[in-house]
Amino acid sequence: MSARGRQWLGTAAIVAMVLALTTAWAGWLNARSSPHYQQAGPGAFADPVPEGSMPIRLASLTATPVLLTDRDQVPSAAGTVWVVALLEYQPPPDGSFCMVDLVAVDGRRWSTVSVLEYTGERGHEADCLAKPGEREPVAELLYQVPEDVVDELAGLASSSTGYRGLNPYWVLTPPG
């Protein structure tokens, strides 16, 4: 190979290396900042946090226009319905918490409704703070969504998307 040919070859190799590194780095950044989701089996326990937190099972997911408490009947706002998610969880020895959003099949997500939005109490706690043996590890989370998305709900997924890795986020699926 001539000297000029070697120069061209060296230049092409450097350019190709720079392009490959740029592409790989951009792809890695994109993969890290784009969480991907995987549906858990219907009613199965799964850990919604990729780093590992606490296995949770979505025991039921129910839509209702009126929320019943021990003191009140709370109608949902116009054009919306309440969605009641009943969770069972397996707390680790030091306890944990559940911060999960209601997600639709197209990725839309809704966060929980504050207990300040209604009066009275429901039958279950609205958190997953129980440690093993303290109380029944069951929680009930409330959401309010437009009524036309009820048939498009996929389940519950971690509300935190700060995880920077390639493991999937599990979507908790209701039984049936």
Partner: peptide, 19 residues
């Protein structure tokens, strides 16, 4: 050739930094 390599490397760094 050196200028070409430098320009490509700078463009790549600017692109990465912006992204």
């Amino acid at each position: 050739r050196r200028w070409l390599v430098a320009i490509v490397a700078c463009a790549a760094m600017v692109g990465l930094h912006a992204y």
